[in-house]
Simulated scan of single mutants.
Amino acid sequence: MTKAVVVDDSHFMRTVISDILEDAGFDVVAQAGDGEAGAAAVAEHDPDVVTMDVEMPRMDGIEAVEEIMARNPTPVVMLSAHTDDGAEATFEAMEKGAVDFLAKPGGEVSTEISAHGDALVEKVRSAARADPASAGDVSATDEVVAADHEYVENPTLIVGASTGGPRIVEKVLSDLPRDADLRVLIVQHMPDGFTERFAARLDRRSEYDVSEAEDGMRIGGGQAVVAKGDYHMEVAGYGNGRLRIRLQQEPQLHGVRPAIDVTMETAAETVTGPLTGVVLTGMGKDGAAGIEAISAVGGATLAQDEASCSVFGIPARAIETGSVDDVRSADEMGKAILDTIREDG
């Protein structure tokens, strides 16, 4: 039976979360009311997974994740307020090694969490299979320098990720030099309200101009967009080296929206210039069909290796299609992408 520790400063929330997990077959071996007690409970009980509130007294969730990863590396799912501050704190916790998060309904302690029980169980079950060492093991960015003339004209890059993805996406994008002049589309499984903050973080930490996708926007060289939460992102047009984006809310695909496959498949149909598809850490099979589509039109395809993935689901399913050109670690992925768009590549 999968062992879990529940950490939240609200007794009500601890009880509700524990009941949901126990009803799903988890063994909740301990509850804690702050980060310090939570880290101690992890050390004592050695659970398979932890749910962690962000805002708590004595030691908050960010500090607790850092403590857990230093002493007893364990997969952690953050429960975050659906606010700007909550989103930023969640990304900081993921930098420290948390593998995934779930937004609390309304950003408040509420019985509505019960209505999100299935999503909570899915997140925790997926996280329990994650490798916490991989989640926290991304090397500092190395400077990438190259001259303009080394790259093909008008290259497009599609990056897809899920569980454990934000830190890896940030690493990959920060390794890409502006003079590569890529048009970058990022599909990270993430709810609405968090994708805008994620885009802002990527914008600060890379040479690319990064924003959250908007319906009808056009993307040129040196620009990157993050698919908006709860919307599929399509490539609806391509001309003069610029992509046109369409957002739509057709039913979820593979249980998610945005879906990696939607963006990759429409890019394969629409983009006539150089095209590279990359799938990173995450649970499920979203991205496999997209990688096949990109490969079928002569595009380059890459997948993250198992050793550096938090969850080797999405890359594994893509590799199984036989359409992945190369498998690389998170640290090597930036260089691998650049290799696909070099004039002599």
Score class of each variant (00 low, 15 high):
Phe312Asn: 04
Arg218Thr: 08
Ala300Trp: 11
Glu306Val: 07
Gln304Cys: 07
Gly299Leu: 10
Asp215Ser: 14
Gly229His: 05
Gly299Cys: 10
Ala213Met: 08
Glu250Asp: 11
Arg317Phe: 13
Ala267Leu: 10
Val279Trp: 01
Ser211Pro: 01
Asp331Gly: 14
Val279Ser: 01
Ala213Arg: 02
Ser211Val: 15
Gly322Asp: 04
Gly239Asn: 13
Asp286Tyr: 00
Val297Asn: 06
Arg246Ala: 12
Phe312Arg: 10
Met283Ser: 09
Ala307Ser: 15
Gly277Tyr: 01
Asp325His: 01
Asn240Gly: 10
Ile319Met: 14
Leu243Val: 07
Gly221Ile: 06
Gly229Ala: 09
Gly273Asn: 08
Thr301Phe: 00
Ala300Phe: 11
Gln248Phe: 03
Thr270Ile: 12
Leu247Cys: 12
Gln304Pro: 06
Glu234Cys: 14
Asp209Phe: 09
Gly298Asn: 07
Thr276Gln: 10
Asp325Phe: 00
Leu243Thr: 12
Val278Glu: 07
Gly237Lys: 15
Ala289His: 05
Asp305Ile: 05
Ile219Cys: 12
Ala267Ile: 06
Ala268Cys: 10
Glu214Thr: 15
Arg317Thr: 13
Thr263Arg: 01
Ala330His: 05
Pro274Trp: 08
Glu332Arg: 13
Asp209Pro: 09
Thr281Pro: 09
Ile291Leu: 14
Val256Glu: 13
Ala259Phe: 07
Ile245Cys: 06
Val262Gln: 07
Ile319Tyr: 04
Gly273Glu: 11
Ala236Asp: 11
Val225Gly: 00
